[in-house]
Amino acid sequence: MSTHIPVGPVLDTTGPPDGARKVGDLKPDLLLTQEHHMCPGCGEPLTIRVFLEAIQELGVAQKTVAVCGIGCYTSFSGTLDVDLVQALHGRAPSVATGVKRMLPDSVVFTLQGDGDMVNEGLQEVLHTAARGERVTCILLNNGVFGETGGHMTATSVLGQRTKNTLDGRDAQYHGYPILIGDLIAQLQGAVYVARGSVHNAGAIARTKKMFRRAFEAQIRGEGFTFVEVLTMCPTGWFIPTADGPDYMTETLGEVHIMGELKVGGVVRSTEELHTENVRRAEEAAAAKARDLAAKHE
């Protein structure tokens, strides 16, 4: 059996492909610079871009206060062009509460990672949600302590290898992951709860819609809103950068099911979301197959 091995490059790499844009070209206006300190392939800058765009499109940039937790994303606190309070690890929801109670007409959001929100500050976010505080908590969930170098968090999935679960997270030894979005959806004070991701263009577009809906519900004064975003952390997952999106959907994404978990105060079941995701994946695969077939005709 002979294998055809192409000779020379199959892609022209002498210049950028047609229509390509540099990441910096996509910088939202509410970022002071296109520079950041995140690793290549990190999902956090993408998420930050998306919610900043949502804030700008809603026209509320000049009445927004951010409250930032402690994690890799903290280095954005100096470059987000919105008023910002730097909080302690885990404590952003309470700080956001104090801000919102004194500035009830403002849009207040927290920016936290899973270590910050689900480990250190679990009670803060739950109480703030139960209180129906009119703030939006944003969770960047990558299932790992990225900043400390790759350790297990409360959202790490079973089997996930981290620096302190070298043989993988074992339920008997390390316990089970917390599905924080699902937990918050059960609380009466939470009116909108969604779990998005940034692993491909479709997911990014859906996540942006989630941010818009959350901020809109906050602006209407309906109650607590929550957007969790599954973000790639190739460094903390110890995988090649390019594998991030697939690794995410095959591990974290299989456990923390994506979709709108609660809309208008109505909770949607995991099964419902799962069915929706499977249908979407099947449709996408079918569309891809059609494209491929059309090309070969």
Partner: peptide
Amino acid sequence: LDGTLGGTGRSGIVSPLGFGK
């Protein structure tokens, strides 16, 4: 902070860490 400086390039920060915008 009152939230009004967003998008102006002059937004503020209240931080214990000694760094600004």
